[in-house]
Design a protein around this nucleic acid. Sequence first.
DNA 1: AGCGAGTAAGACCGGTCTGTCTGCACCTTG
DNA 2: CAAGGTGCAGACAGACCGGTCTTACTCGCT
Lengths: 175, 175
Amino acid sequence: MAYELFSRRGVRDVGVNELIERSGVAKATFYRHFPSKDALVLAFLEQRDQVWTVDAIVGQAKLRGTTPTEQLLAIFDVFGDWFLRDDFEACSFINILLEMGPAHPLGQASIDYLARIRGHVQALAEQAGLDRPEDFARSWHILMKGSIVSATEGDTQAAKRAQQMASWLIEHHRS
Amino acid sequence: MAYELFSRRGVRDVGVNELIERSGVAKATFYRHFPSKDALVLAFLEQRDQVWTVDAIVGQAKLRGTTPTEQLLAIFDVFGDWFLRDDFEACSFINILLEMGPAHPLGQASIDYLARIRGHVQALAEQAGLDRPEDFARSWHILMKGSIVSATEGDTQAAKRAQQMASWLIEHHRS
DNA sequence: AGCGAGTAAGACCGGTCTGTCTGCACCTTG
DNA sequence: CAAGGTGCAGACAGACCGGTCTTACTCGCT
């Protein structure tokens, strides 16, 4: 419920009253479960990490590839499908980070969840035996985030472009 | 005045009342010059394109390099300095695009100004005689935008990482 | 049966937002 | 001097925000 609204329209655009009304719950009940709206947003970010990062992206990529290197590159195949969906809504972590700023608690939480994504990439890089896996993951993450913004602009080929650069990155990190 | 506030704190976080008060102008006078707040934001975006895109980034990069290829790579040198500034505030075009969404008029305007940035890159690519300059510019732009988000997360080396991948991109677009 | 916990519904509070309108001082032009 | 335009200051409108609190009702438990 809140997950759909937050991920599609952003945190700032969805008010507590609307959430209350749509979920058919009383306001007092809501505030008994969550001390503030920000607490609900934190819960949303955690759910987003599981549903989107772990299941939809990393999980799907692991299914599509057999070797760690294939699984890494498959991330951008998943992105390519995702960018074409009509309910494509960019990345909530990036959205909230840029919307609230890195100093805000929700911005900090977004940074943490983005670091978790980078951790998945780094783990695959280590399995693939690549050099300097942390540097690799940070560069890889630049491609992921950049392609998401380009897709938001309307470039449906953004995933392919990023994947091409990603393959060069892999080559340069081979032992 | 409005430029500083909008670029540092975002469009949604700065209200008309605050702008009025800080600029020492009457509210009626403001609304005589701009029919709405969005019209002011549009003027801000245009100013941002000149001050930031044209002068601060592309202009500086052209000063730092002699050949088109050097000027392209110098973009990320400029980014590196920019990321270290304490008043680094990410890219207003990306911020507004993700904040308002691509359907909103301000999101559309942001997409247009991002396309102008890509146009500068494409022009340099053509001067450098690179293959498929439009594809080159779109891939290059992915690196620019991805590094900006990474810098917002706190990665001070984001510009270096993007520059490394950018050099590989140049190599693969040589005739 | 009677009691208390939990909940839906929504009034309410202080504050914010964009945008309009009024009052008053000033300043130029005839 | 008089008229009219201009601009500042700020009240005001109408909507919305996050968050608190009251009211009425429905349950489950003893």
